[in-house]
């Protein structure tokens, strides 16, 4: 079981800020493909992966990052702090 978190416009498009999923995905990229295959809403939310960043257990990672042992995966647009 992995806890998924969504932020900013990705949260709005997915329609929730967090959910728990059962997944066999080996990497962040695999997980994105799984989510996109769910329904049109997810497919739309994840349609432009160039505009999406990911964190595994609260550390920013590349999409080829492995999910083995991960507890929490977050997806969000590029950050705009400061």
């Amino acid at each position: 079981m992995i806890e998924l978190r969504y932020f900013a416009w990705l949260r709005e498009r997915v329609g929730t800020g967090h959910e728990t999923v059962e997944t066999e995905a080996a990497t962040v990229a695999d997980l994105i493909e799984e989510l996109k295959a769910r329904d049109e809403g997810y497919a739309f939310a994840f349609s432009d992966t160039g505009a999406i960043r990911a964190a595994v257990d609260q550390e920013l990672v590349a999409f080829d990052a492995p999910l083995a042992g991960a507890r929490e995966v977050a997806f969000f647009p590029p950050m705009t702090g400061g």
Partner: peptide, 9 residues
């Protein structure tokens, strides 16, 4: 901080 801390305006 502007592009590596998770804030969204």
């Amino acid at each position: 901080l502007k592009s590596r801390a998770p804030f969204w305006k």
